[in-house]
């Protein structure tokens, strides 16, 4: 994250909603799950990864993408979560699923715990130089890598970047939501797991 983020995370996710096609899976976690649920009713192929093991959303999405290679799978992850499982970038590039799109929402903080800076953010480092997740992804072997700082920039480029040869890595610089809280589970996990698996089975590709 190289500068002040201006993108509203809800607006950034709205762009994803606009481009999400029928049959696509969207995995959200932490802040993206909270914002996604606030935008309206969930699709049967939405997987709100709450409760989660922090950092594991891209790995879970990888599993779905490998099991159903003809289906596009979006994984929405925070930068703090990405730091907890950076190896997933290597695992995913090794498998190289063409149907996986990983979107990292960079706000530089652990938002739901009180907006403490992550060790990857400019504020969390003595040299005030934030870690560049897009460059990390490239170094891990991802070839379709994009970074957007402004909402209009993301909106204008979304179709092309989402449609690039997968796996696709998209870094979105977003603003922290002041006073944000963690997402609430939208229902009992066992029932949600059963329904999600059934939705994937019924629309198997």
């Amino acid at each position: 994250m190289s500068g002040h983020a201006a993108m509203d995370p809800g607006g950034a996710l709205a762009v994803l909603r606009e481009h999400r096609a029928s049959g696509d899976v969207v995995v959200t976690s932490m802040g993206s799950a909270r914002e996604w649920m606030a935008m309206g009713p969930l699709d049967p192929l939405d997987f709100v990864f709450v409760p989660s093991s922090m950092g594991q959303a891209p790995s879970l999405a990888l599993g779905i993408a490998l099991a159903q290679p003809a289906r596009r799978v979006f994984a929405c992850n925070g930068d703090g979560s990405m730091l907890m499982n950076l190896g997933a970038l290597v695992t995913i590039s090794a498998e190289s699923p063409r149907n996986l799109v990983l979107i990292v929402f960079e706000n530089g903080v652990y938002e739901v715990t009180g907006a403490q800076p992550t060790p990857g953010s400019a504020l969390g480092r003595p040299d005030r130089r934030g870690v560049d997740f897009a460059e990390i992804a490239r170094a891990c072997g991802w070839t379709s890598v994009f970074r957007y700082r402004e909402l209009e920039e993301w909106r204008n480029a979304a179709s092309e970047s989402i449609g690039a040869a997968g796996p696709v890595f998209i870094a979105l610089e977003v603003a922290p939501v002041p006073g944000a809280v963690g997402p609430r589970s939208p229902g009992p996990t066992v029932e949600r797991a059963r329904k999600f698996r059934e939705a994937l089975r019924q629309t198997n590709r």
Binding site: S53, L60, G63, N85, N204
Partner: peptide, 20 residues
């Protein structure tokens, strides 16, 4: 599927299970 750490393995397996 070769993963980088074992914590990943459970999440990848979960996704695979969801996908049938």
């Amino acid at each position: 599927v070769r993963v980088c750490r074992e914590g990943e393995a459970w999440a990848v397996a979960a996704g695979l299970h969801f996908g049938g």
